[in-house]
Design a protein around this nucleic acid. Structure first.
Lengths: 139, 139
DNA sequence: TGATATTTGCACTATTGTTGCATGGATCTG
DNA sequence: CAGATCCATGCAACAATAGTGCAAATATCA
């Protein structure tokens, strides 16, 4: 199955495709970087903050996006791959946070190795971010 | 050189060892887990929030502690090793955030591999956290 | 169509992170 | 030791982020 439209993409995750949700999803698709709630607020200034907040929460709960906690301190969100379950180690990848332009990139091709955790530590999810300077920012 | 007392530990990082800073450092040494600003507030309720905030900031700037952004969303801090410079990849290690008890553990023995970043992405620091359930929390 | 469930918007509240300024104590210099 | 200077602390704000309760609007279902 190949998901072409945003509407199908939401339905596949059991999320009702409302107008607002479709627009937020389109924005996520278009964005190269992970976005924060305040990014959404700026983009959709006509919409209510709460709606955007809950849209992201819904996406998160249904596994449409994953959450990234970078050095900026504010939570960011990025689209998951089609069949992603956001579980460590298989579905987790590396992120890069540029401290100059404050963009957060997804590197889906850079997976995470399996760490040898101490006994009885049960992993479920992962948050892996390298901070530095991205290729668009001058040294 | 072996740093025995908290006072020597602060001086080695060029931090004036005031009474408050010594007490915060002692608390950090005693804590097994990484702590947040609000943890400090609870522990030192007589002190001003700002002082505690700036104490952590000073520690961070002088490389005495490193910053961890886990899935809790709030920034946490943990003591660095003696000669740590907090730079990726050498001085970065894995952390574990327990979503049940909300404790954040340092695993200094679990280092971070060097990732093959895209061209002109210059790494400086790293934030690596696995979320799950710790050995103290029942399944 | 009417009943029901879900989504959205508004009004708050809480928490975290942060700054400016005044005070007080430590340190330095003559 | 006196005076000047520097730094740490405390107080009072403020800003941004995160989250909740409720009522109105909208969609869905029988």
């Amino acid at each position: 199955m190949n998901i072409n439209t945003s509407e199908e993409r939401l339905k596949a995750r059991n999320i009702q495709p409302t107008a607002m949700r479709l627009r937020v999803l389109t924005y996520l698709v278009e964005s190269q970087a992970a976005i924060s709630l305040s990014d959404l607020e700026k983009k959709f200034s006509q919409a209510d903050r709460t709606t955007l907040f809950r849209t992201l929460k819904t996406y998160l709960e249904h596994g449409l996006v994953h959450q990234i906690n970078d050095a900026s301190g504010t939570t960011k969100y990025a689209l998951c791959a089609e069949n992603c379950t956001c579980t460590y180690p298989d579905d987790i990848h590396l992120h890069f946070y540029c401290s100059s332009c404050e963009q957060t990139y997804c590197f889906p091709h850079l997976g995470i190795p399996e760490f040898d955790l101490p006994e009885n530590f049960k992993p479920a999810r992962g948050n892996f971010v390298i901070t530095g300077q991205c290729s668009s920012c001058p040294a």
